[in-house]
């Protein structure tokens, strides 16, 4: 699919603060669980090597939105996408029927709400994506594993117990292990679904710091229920409500001078 027309994607505030260059963008993305419409024509740009945060009250569809990117919904029957998610630089609509979801997932990576390390060693957890991609060279895998664990700020803590079970680490370490696992395959876009909601404040801080570091190399799209977190770490914020995009803009602007009443009510804590 060609790049969609610029038409509908104007800044809701009309201020022209539109991200550039883009790593991805959704174009009128709608999503159905059975007959229930849970995403309504959502169009959001994802700026390259930036952090884009999705905020909104529970049930607003932000996780559903995120999971469209790696076609997670394909795993469940009765789900349907409409519209497009375009991945750049090849301008490919990854929702296209002809696109193999596995091929899409090879380009992206995802970190889940609850740490979900596989019941394997720390090393094998990180090596998983490489093995799935058919990498056989031991030295190449060793190197990638170390690199990914360093990027996830976990190397120093686990370098002496790479053969320990991933599930034996602490919650914060497990989540960083999942981030390392995601980074090992050099994803173009890193999807994070409330990655710190199951963690204590210290572990949360370390992951937030890590994300700041990572964004130099990888585009990040993060769902968070925590507005302070979005304000702290993201460059762009999309506020969603009841399956619709209410407002999108640079984080600083959206949190200081929201253009919509609903956004203002939400970020000032009047609802949600």
């Amino acid at each position: 699919m060609a790049r969609p027309v610029d038409g509908p994607y104007i800044d809701s505030a009309g201020r022209g603060d539109w991200p550039k260059p883009l790593k991805a963008e959704t174009c009128e993305l709608s999503f159905y669980y059975g007959t229930r419409l849970v995403l309504k024509r959502v169009s959001v740009p994802i700026a390259e090597c930036n952090i884009t945060a999705l905020i909104g009250p529970s049930g607003c569809g932000k996780s559903t939105f995120l999971r469209c990117f790696n076609r997670m919904h394909d795993l469940y029957p009765g789900t349907r996408y409409e519209g497009a998610i375009v991945l750049y630089p090849d301008s490919r609509n990854i929702l296209d029927r002809e696109v193999d979801p596995i091929e899409v997932r090879m380009r992206l990576a995802m970190v889940f709400q609850k740490p979900n390390p596989f019941p394997k060693s720390v090393y094998e957890n990180v090596a998983y994506g490489l093995r799935v991609r058919g990498v056989k060279d031991r030295r190449a895998i060793d190197e990638k594993v170390e690199q990914a664990l360093r990027s996830a700020a976990l190397w120093e803590e686990v370098k002496d117990r790479l053969s320990a079970l991933g599930t034996s680490l602490s919650g914060g370490q497990q989540q960083r292990l999942c981030i390392a696992r995601a980074l090992a395959t050099d994803p173009e876009l890193l999807l994070l679904d409330e990655p710190t909601s199951a963690l204590d404040p210290i572990a949360t801080a370390s992951i937030e710091e890590l994300l700041q570091d990572l964004k130099r190399r990888v585009t990040i799209l993060i769902v968070t229920h925590n507005m302070q977190q979005a304000a702290r770490i993201s460059d762009w914020t999309a506020f969603m409500y009841l399956g619709e995009l209410v407002e999108f803009g640079p984080t600083k602007r959206l949190f200081t001078t929201p253009a919509k009443k609903q956004t203002e009510d939400y970020i000032t804590g009047r609802f949600g």
Binding site: L75, M110, K114, N116, F118, Y128, V132, A182
Partner: peptide, 23 residues
Amino acid sequence: VLREGSYAMGATHLETAWRVVVP
């Protein structure tokens, strides 16, 4: 969520069953 983690890494159905679910 373990299966999803595996699929998200680009694993196939069979790889997920064999490398994640069975272990």
